[in-house]
Write a protein that binds this DNA or RNA. Structure first.
Length: 596
RNA sequence: CGGGGCGUAGCGCAGUCUGGUAGCGCAUCUGCUUUGGGAGCAGAGGGUCGCCAGUUCGAAUCUGGCCGCCCCGACCA
């Protein structure tokens, strides 16, 4: 049992002006965290208790499938050079020098360290599979930390890595993680969804994210309420609705039309009286290709063509081009590649590179352009457009791929499903990922298989943001008075509010009750402060504690009040029954916390 | 890194335009009263006004530089 009077719980009546999102405001107000710098936070006792409960759940579930390690946060440069990521991580990596001038970095992820252990210690297929995990602090110099604990530069991550002999083994390790993650988030009381995720430009075959819907999130999820399809917008696809093609004009060949002042899609559509779906949008980028094996980085011109009503998805684009970075083309570059001005760019007559990102202009056509007819596009000439343009006939491309973002309301991609996609914002709390051979290959990890032949193990990597479980839980359960956490991750499960600490009888009753509740296995916070009842109620409502027992007026009749923070419902119960009742409620709630 | 905003007591803010004694509310400390939804009265403590330089008799206030923080965007294993 802990006494409020002796705990450091600096609650704030007003939220600091810096805080915007609910979890940030409330974590500060409830005395869970304090800020040290941008994206750097101290965890105060209540916050630390909650994070400890979360890590305990994570540890319990992970121990069922793997083994816990604890790896260094400081890594030598050489290790990261081996995987090629000393350069690839760029500015996101914190770097430092030791007294001898040697380069070091702070670990932002631990594939390299784990792989270095595996390569020097794992020799035989008989030692596989291995699932190695740790719960450890990560450092990432984020370009823009934000939203309290949502995106920070130092945070706690459960990261794990699997090593298997073959893909079937990786499938099994991946499934084990899927199961463990579902158990962890369910036990943490999160209403989560599992979505298909982008597996990145670095290779890797399959990837899922565990998401909690919240406006404070940074990701968008497309989902189908009908069949259950769900994917990160970076990955989501949809079926195309048939488009009514425009009538052919003239002899059917591309026809130059004077379109003064029609630089925007809406203007063009209005001018021709067409739907934006019949206009070809051009987005011109310079794309950065990271040099491999000592070659320098290089920028390449990329022209993306897609329907006027579609948006480029840069994650998908980066995936198909293996590009590290994009920036918009500047006027001089537009002139070089298109001989035309922004607003009037089009695909007809361009010199198309044969190989992507290898000199010249890489032309990418979105899949939705294939088979279309009689479209309108820019003529690469100020104030002129072309019509009757047929993709494939009138222009070609380096490659054609799905590089657009789906829109809300489009048909679900599942064959035979008649559902419409909805798009919502969410917080990513976990990610599981089939890595493949990237690190075992580049870092030279080898084992002997049953035939005595040297083979590369195949890897998976899996992450959970510990603080994000806390923030997501707060985002999903808060009001103007404060928040309430699922009992499993709350710093205390029940607060006992002695309404008048000056009253000896009440105080003793509170003490006794607290002892009983604790004996029943609950985490009890006894509010024994010499404060008015109102102050104690406000603090208890603020601080994320799911249940409160008021020891006050009715104590003379042998009764106390049990208040459930989530619903505000108050129950008068006999003092000797209070402990059992809270336990019962808690168990019900944890069952309700289950999700799909 | 582009755009915007902010920096004055622990928190929330006024004062800056128009230079002249650094203020308000909450919180904190002491005393008395009060005790079921952030109490009342009386008293008290707490500030290099983000930092550095300049202008001036005099700078929180004007000028220049720097630093930090927040938001939008870019970015995000």
């Amino acid at each position: 049992m802990r006494r409020w009077s002796r705990l450091f719980i600096p609650t704030l009546r007003e939220a600091p002006a810096d805080a915007e999102v609910a979890s940030h405001k409330l974590l500060l107000r409830a005395g869970y965290i304090r800020q040290l710098g941008a994206g750097i936070y101290s965890y105060l006792p209540l916050g630390q208790r909650s994070l400890n409960k979360i890590t305990a759940i994570v540890r319990e579930e992970m121990d069922k499938i793997g083994q816990e390690f604890f790896l260094p946060a400081i890594h030598p440069r050489e290790l990261w050079e081996e995987s090629g990521r000393w350069a690839a991580m760029g500015e996101n990596m914190f770097r430092l020098k030791d007294r001898k001038g040697a380069d070091l970095c702070l670990g932002m992820t631990h594939e390299e360290v784990m792989t270095s252990i595996a390569r020097s210690e794992v020799r035989s297929y008989k030692q596989l599979p291995q699932i190695w995990y740790q719960i450890q602090t990560k450092f990432r110099d984020e370009p823009r930390p934000r939203s309290g604990l949502m995106r920070v530069r130092q945070f706690i991550m459960k990261d794990s890595y699997s090593f298997d002999l073959d893909e079937a083994g990786l499938d099994a390790s991946y499934k084990l993680h899927d199961g463990a993650y579902r158990a962890i988030f369910t036990r943490s009381g999160l209403k989560f969804v599992v979505v298909e995720a982008d597996s990145g430009a670095m290779g890797g075959s399959q990837s899922q994210e565990f998401m909690v819907y919240s406006d404070a999130g940074e990701d968008f999820i497309a989902s189908c309420p009908r069949c259950g399809y769900a994917a990160n917008l970076e990955k989501a696809t949809s079926q195309l609705q048939p488009v009514e093609e425009m009538e052919t004009t003239g002899n059917g060949n591309p026809e130059l039309v004077h379109t003064p002042g029609c630089a925007a899609i809406a203007d063009v559509a209005a001018f021709f009286g067409i739907s934006p779906a019949s206009d070809i949008k051009c987005v011109a980028y310079m794309a950065l290709k990271r040099g491999e094996k000592g070659k320098p980085d290089a920028w390449h011109g990329v022209a993306v063509f897609l329907r006027g009503d579609h948006l480029v998805n840069e994650t998908k684009l980066a995936g198909v081009l293996k590009a590290a970075e994009f920036r918009p083309m500047q006027a001089a570059e537009l002139e070089q590649y298109f001989q035309g001005p922004a607003g009037y760019l089009g695909p007809v007559g361009l010199e198309v590179a044969r190989e992507p990102m290898d000199g010249g202009l890489t032309v990418v056509a979105d899949k939705s352009l294939e088979g279309r007819k009689n479209m309108v596009c820019g003529a690469n000439k100020l104030d002129y457009h072309l019509r009757n343009v047929c993709p494939g006939r009138d222009f070609g491309w380096t490659l054609s791929a799905d590089i657009r973002s789906v829109n809300e309301g489009e048909p679900c991609p599942t064959p035979g499903c008649a559902g419409r996609l909805t798009v919502g914002k969410a917080v990513e709390v976990g990610h599981i990922f089939k890595l493949g051979y990237k690190y075992t290959e580049s870092m030279g990890a080898r084992v002997l298989d049953a035939n005595g032949k040297e083979v590369r193990p195949i890897m998976g990597c899996y992450g959970i943001g510990i603080e994000r479980i806390l923030t997501a839980a707060i985002e999903q359960s808060n009001d103007e008075k404060g928040f309430w956490l699922p009992p499993s991750i709350a710093p205390f499960t029940v607060a006992i509010t002695v309404t008048n600490s000056g009253d000896e009888t009440l105080r003793k009753t509170g003490e006794t009750l607290a002892g009983e509740l604790e004996a029943a296995g609950l985490d009890v916070l006894l509010d024994d402060r010499d404060e008015r009842a109102g102050v104690k109620f406000k603090d208890a409502d603020l601080a994320g504690i799911p249940y409160r027992i008021n020891v006050g007026r009715k104590t003379a009749d042998g009764m106390v009040e049990l208040v459930a923070r989530a619903t505000g419902t108050t129950l008068e119960v006999r003092i000797d029954e209070a402990a059992a009742l809270v336990k019962e409620r808690m168990e019900e709630e944890e069952l309700l916390g289950a999700s799909v």
